[in-house]
């Protein structure tokens, strides 16, 4: 076995890979939020940024596949680790008090993650696939001003707004453990900077999902 394969099939290597994909997705979430948030501030800015992201070949054909790979890798590796972890304890305890020594979020990453995965499946079917069909299958003429109206239309539906809100609550729960856990998995822990990572993690985990929720609710109420 090559050193590379050996490293990334070890318990530590797998967690390292999991953490790297998590850190990548943390950056993506910020970028996605920044563009979405402009829809609250300026229709013109949102349209121009969305048009750039939707038509730029580097974004569409280089960054988008990397992102999809990152997402798929993260949940596939999550499943692999979960199966291995479950098999490491064949007989369960008759009585187990998990809350005595760990947070609910840390013990339920699978369930918060699965809910986020369902949301991503919904988001793909609801937004991404129709967008791809619109652009690359039907080959509609490029309209740089269609995006804002589409967002407004999307968030007219209260069920969609509710699904968004609930999903981002699960994202917050996932991040409350995941953010600082990713740093631990790559070995980045020191009494000098770990308290800052923990604080930043809490801020990110609450603020980022809250802002996504704000955008959905804002458009629902404002139009």
């Amino acid at each position: 076995m090559s050193w590379f394969k050996r490293t990334f099939s070890s318990s530590i290597g797998r967690k390292f890979a999991m953490a790297l994909s998590a850190l990548f997705l943390l950056i993506f979430l910020l970028q996605h939020l920044a563009i979405n948030f402009t829809s609250v501030i300026s229709e013109k800015t949102f349209n121009s940024l969305s048009h750039f992201m939707g038509t730029n070949p580097v974004v569409q054909f280089a960054l988008q596949p990397v992102l999809i790979f990152g997402v798929v890798f993260h949940f596939m590796m999550g499943f692999i680790l979960e199966i291995k972890n479950k098999s490491a304890r064949a007989v369960r305890y008759a009585k187990n008090d998990g809350s005595a020594n760990s947070s609910w979020m840390s013990r339920n990453m699978l369930w918060s993650g699965l809910f986020i995965l369902f949301f991503l499946a919904f988001h793909f079917a609801d937004f991404w696939i129709p967008e791809m069909v619109y652009k690359y299958v039907e080959v509609n003429p490029s309209d740089p001003n269609r995006y804002y109206e589409e967002v407004v239309h999307m968030f007219e539906n209260p069920i969609r707004v509710a699904v968004y809100c609930l999903s981002f609550v699960f994202l917050a729960l996932h991040l409350l453990h995941g953010f600082q856990s990713a740093f631990q998995s790559i070995g980045a822990r020191h009494s000098k900077y770990t308290p800052a990572i923990v604080k930043l993690g809490k801020l990110y985990s609450v603020a980022v999902p809250a802002l996504y929720i704000f955008i959905a609710v804002f458009h629902y109420l404002a139009h």
């Binding site: 318990s11 797998r14 967690k15 680790l81 291995k84 972890n85 098999s87 490491a88 304890r89 998990g98 005595a100 020594n101 760990s102 947070s103 840390s106 013990r107 990453m109 453990h177 600082q180 856990s181 631990q184 998995s185 070995g187 980045a188 822990r189 009494s191």
Partner: peptide
């Protein structure tokens, strides 16, 4: 056949000798 670390920190809390998660990092 031991499992992987999920960084829940349960081990550190239950350890009779207070071994820190710093060691895992």
């Amino acid at each position: 056949g031991f499992g992987n670390c999920s960084n829940t920190g349960a081990c550190e809390v239950e350890c009779p000798k207070g071994i820190s998660l710093e060691n895992i990092a």
